[in-house]
Deep mutational scan, measured.
Amino acid sequence: KFNKERVIAIGEIMRLPNLNSLQVVAFINSLRDDPSQSANLLAEAKKLNDAQAP
C-alpha cells in the first residue's frame, strides 16, 4: 500500500511548478525514508508550492 502511495506522491511532487530542485529532492528523500508519511509529505509539498507561487 505505502509503495503505491509513495510512487503517486513522488509523481505529484515532481509536477509542482513552484518548488525548486532542492525542495523536490528533499521531499522525495523524506518519502523514501518513511513511505507511510506519503499523504502528509504530499500535503506539505503542495502547501509550500502554493506559498511560493508568483
Rank of each mutant, 00 (worst) to 15 (best):
K1H: 14
K1S: 15
K1Q: 15
K1V: 07
K1G: 15
K1D: 15
F2A: 15
F2P: 15
F2I: 15
F2G: 15
F2D: 15
N3S: 04
N3V: 05
N3M: 04
N3R: 02
N3K: 03
N3E: 15
N3T: 08
K4R: 03
K4C: 15
K4W: 14
K4Q: 14
K4A: 09
K4D: 15
K4F: 02
K4P: 15
E5M: 12
E5Q: 06
E5G: 06
E5V: 04
E5C: 14
E5S: 05
E5D: 13
R6H: 15
R6G: 15
R6L: 15
R6N: 14
R6W: 15
R6T: 15
V7H: 11
V7M: 14
V7D: 15
V7T: 12
V7K: 14
I8L: 11
I8R: 11
I8G: 03
I8F: 06
I8E: 08
I8H: 05
I8Y: 07
A9W: 06
A9N: 03
A9F: 14
A9E: 03
A9M: 07
A9D: 02
A9Y: 06
I10A: 05
I10T: 04
I10P: 01
I10V: 06
I10E: 14
G11M: 13
G11A: 09
G11W: 12
G11Q: 08
G11T: 07
G11V: 05
G11R: 11
G11D: 05
G11Y: 11
E12S: 06
E12C: 14
E12Q: 10
E12T: 12
E12G: 07
E12A: 13
E12N: 05
E12M: 12
I13L: 07
I13H: 00
I13E: 00
I13A: 01
M14R: 09
M14S: 06
M14E: 06
M14H: 05
M14L: 08
M14C: 15
M14F: 04
R15L: 13
R15S: 11
R15H: 09
R15M: 08
R15A: 10
R15K: 09
R15T: 10
R15C: 14
L16I: 01
L16N: 01
L16E: 00
L16C: 03
L16P: 00
L16T: 01
P17M: 06
P17R: 07
N18L: 02
N18E: 02
N18S: 04
N18H: 11
N18V: 00
L19W: 00
L19M: 02
L19D: 00
N20Q: 07
N20Y: 06
N20D: 08
N20W: 05
S21Y: 13
S21R: 12
S21T: 14
S21H: 13
S21D: 05
S21K: 08
S21I: 11
L22A: 12
L22C: 14
L22M: 09
Q23L: 04
Q23K: 00
Q23W: 03
Q23V: 03
Q23R: 00
V24Y: 03
V24K: 13
V24W: 03
V24L: 10
V24Q: 05
V24I: 12
V24C: 10
V25K: 10
V25E: 09
A26G: 13
A26N: 09
A26T: 08
A26L: 06
A26M: 14
A26C: 14
A26E: 09
F27T: 01
F27C: 04
F27H: 01
F27P: 01
F27A: 02
F27V: 03
I28F: 05
I28V: 04
I28W: 04
I28Q: 03
I28P: 01
N29W: 04
N29C: 15
N29D: 11
N29T: 13
N29P: 01
N29R: 11
N29V: 08
S30K: 13
S30L: 14
S30C: 11
S30V: 09
S30G: 09
S30Q: 14
S30H: 08
S30Y: 10
S30A: 10
L31W: 05
L31C: 03
L31M: 05
L31K: 00
L31G: 00
L31D: 01
L31P: 00
L31V: 09
L31F: 04
L31H: 01
R32Q: 14
R32P: 05
R32Y: 14
R32W: 14
R32E: 14
R32A: 14
D33S: 10
D33Q: 05
D33A: 09
D33G: 07
D33I: 13
D33Y: 10
D33R: 07
D33N: 09
D33M: 11
D34A: 07
D34M: 08
D34E: 07
D34W: 07
P35T: 07
P35H: 06
P35R: 03
P35S: 07
S36H: 06
S36Q: 10
S36K: 07
S36R: 08
S36T: 13
S36D: 05
Q37F: 09
Q37C: 08
Q37E: 08
Q37D: 06
Q37K: 11
Q37A: 12
Q37S: 08
S38K: 04
S38Y: 15
S38C: 13
A39L: 13
A39H: 09
A39P: 05
A39V: 12
A39S: 10
A39I: 10
A39E: 09
A39Y: 11
N40P: 06
N40S: 13
N40C: 13
N40D: 09
N40H: 14
N40K: 11
N40W: 10
N40G: 09
L41W: 06
L41K: 08
L41Y: 11
L41T: 12
L41M: 10
L41G: 01
L41V: 13
L41F: 07
L41C: 09
L42D: 00
L42G: 01
L42V: 11
L42E: 02
L42Q: 02
L42S: 03
L42R: 04
L42F: 03
L42W: 03
L42A: 04
L42I: 06
A43H: 08
A43D: 11
A43K: 09
A43W: 07
A43L: 11
A43T: 13
A43P: 01
E44Y: 10
E44H: 05
E44L: 13
E44G: 05
E44W: 07
A45I: 02
A45N: 00
A45Q: 00
A45P: 01
A45W: 02
A45E: 00
A45R: 00
A45T: 00
K46E: 03
K46L: 07
K46V: 07
K47G: 06
K47I: 11
K47C: 14
K47D: 06
L48M: 07
L48G: 00
L48F: 04
L48N: 02
L48E: 03
L48S: 02
L48K: 03
L48W: 05
L48Q: 04
L48Y: 03
L48I: 07
N49D: 04
N49Y: 00
N49E: 00
N49C: 03
N49Q: 01
D50V: 07
D50W: 07
D50K: 06
D50Y: 07
D50C: 11
D50G: 08
D50M: 09
D50Q: 08
D50L: 09
D50A: 10
A51L: 10
A51I: 08
A51D: 11
A51T: 07
A51G: 05
A51Q: 07
Q52F: 05
Q52C: 14
Q52R: 05
Q52N: 05
Q52H: 04
Q52K: 03
Q52A: 04
Q52E: 03
Q52L: 06
A53E: 07
A53V: 07
A53R: 09
A53H: 09
A53T: 08
A53C: 13
A53S: 08
P54Y: 07
P54D: 12
P54L: 08
P54W: 05
